[in-house]
Computed example of a mutant assay.
Amino acid sequence: MFGRGADIGIDLGTASVLIYIKGQGIVLQEPSIVAINNKSGEVIAVGEEARAMLGRTPQNITAIRPLRRGVIDDYEATEKMLKYFIHKAIGPRLIKPRIAVCVPSGVTEVEKRAVEDATRQAGARKVDIIEEPIAAAIGAGIDISRPCGSMIVDIGGGTADIAVISLGGAVVNKSIKVAGDNFDEAIMTYLRKKHGMLIGERTAEEIKKNIGTAYTRDFPVEMTAKGRNLVSGLPKNIVLSSDEIQEALAGPIDEIVWAVRDVLETTPPELAADISDRGIVLTGGGSLIYGLDKLIAERVGINAVIADEAISCVAVGTGLFVEYKYSRKNRRRNAYD
Rank of each mutant, 00 (worst) to 15 (best):
I245Y: 08
Q246G: 15
Q246P: 13
A248T: 08
A248E: 09
A248I: 11
L249N: 14
L249Y: 14
A250R: 14
G251N: 15
G251F: 14
P252R: 15
P252H: 14
I253E: 08
I253S: 10
I253Y: 06
D254T: 10
D254E: 15
D254F: 08
E255H: 11
E255R: 12
I256R: 13
I256Q: 12
I256Y: 12
V257N: 10
V257G: 10
W258P: 04
W258T: 11
A259M: 03
A259D: 02
A259T: 02
A259V: 01
A259H: 03
A259S: 07
V260T: 05
V260Q: 00
V260K: 02
R261N: 03
R261Y: 01
R261A: 03
R261V: 05
R261W: 02
D262K: 00
D262A: 07
V263H: 00
V263Y: 01
V263R: 03
V263K: 02
L264R: 04
L264N: 06
E265P: 01
E265Q: 03
E265F: 06
T266L: 05
T266D: 09
T266P: 04
T267R: 02
T267W: 06
P268W: 00
P268Q: 05
P268E: 00
P268K: 04
P269Y: 13
P269C: 13
P269Q: 13
P269H: 13
P269L: 11
E270N: 05
E270S: 10
L271W: 00
L271E: 01
A272Q: 08
A272H: 06
A272G: 05
A272M: 06
A272N: 05
A273K: 07
A273V: 02
D274L: 04
D274P: 07
